[in-house]
């Protein structure tokens, strides 16, 4: 696992706006630090971490929306929502596959056969679900999303 950026503690007596900027930037950086691992696909934890961090980031953005100009904020928020949704589709299948693989040991030979069929079916779906994720990652690069996001929230 890559070394993830730290989430720095904010000072509770600071104005909300500056804290909100710091939290959003920190979570964004943390989320993006999992992108490469998620792209490779060798370890399912990268997709999991990227999804969870995107959810935390969205919660922060929902809470602190009033600190930012509405129109540009909405665009960034929408993109993070897309990241959560696409990562979610891959993660849900990862979890199901692992769960059914674990169940195999608890089943008899004849019972195992159809669960193996189900696992193969889910693995095909998983391959399909990774395609939109890879397309999204390429689009984030192409559009310089990371730079634009950080520029907006760093101020």
């Amino acid at each position: 696992m890559v070394k993830e950026p730290k989430i720095k503690k904010v000072s509770p007596d600071e104005p909300l706006e500056s804290c909100a900027r710091q939290i959003i930037v920190d979570y964004f950086r943390k989320m993006m630090s999992y992108k490469e691992g998620a792209e490779e696909g060798a370890d399912i934890e990268f997709v999991h971490e990227m999804r969870v961090t995107s959810r935390r980031l969205r919660t922060a953005m929902d809470n602190f929306a009033d600190c930012f100009p509405e129109e540009a904020f909405k665009k960034h928020h929408k993109k993070i929502k897309t990241i959560t949704r696409i990562m979610g589709a891959v993660r849900d299948l990862d979890v199901l596959i692992v769960r059914f693989q674990r169940e195999l040991d608890t089943l008899s030979g004849v019972e195992r056969a159809d669960i193996r069929g189900l696992i193969e079916h889910l693995q095909c779906e998983q391959e399909e679900a990774r395609k939109p994720m890879l397309t999204l990652f390429a689009k984030l690069e192409e559009t310089n999303f990371e730079k634009k996001f950080l520029k907006f929230f760093r101020k």
Binding site: P12, E14, P15, L16, E17, A20, N63, F64, A65, D66
Partner: peptide, 14 residues
């Protein structure tokens, strides 16, 4: 979320 005041402290907005 309503009633958030960006210039007020983090503590108060919590």
């Amino acid at each position: 979320i309503t009633g958030v005041e960006p210039t007020h402290s983090y503590r108060k907005n919590a």
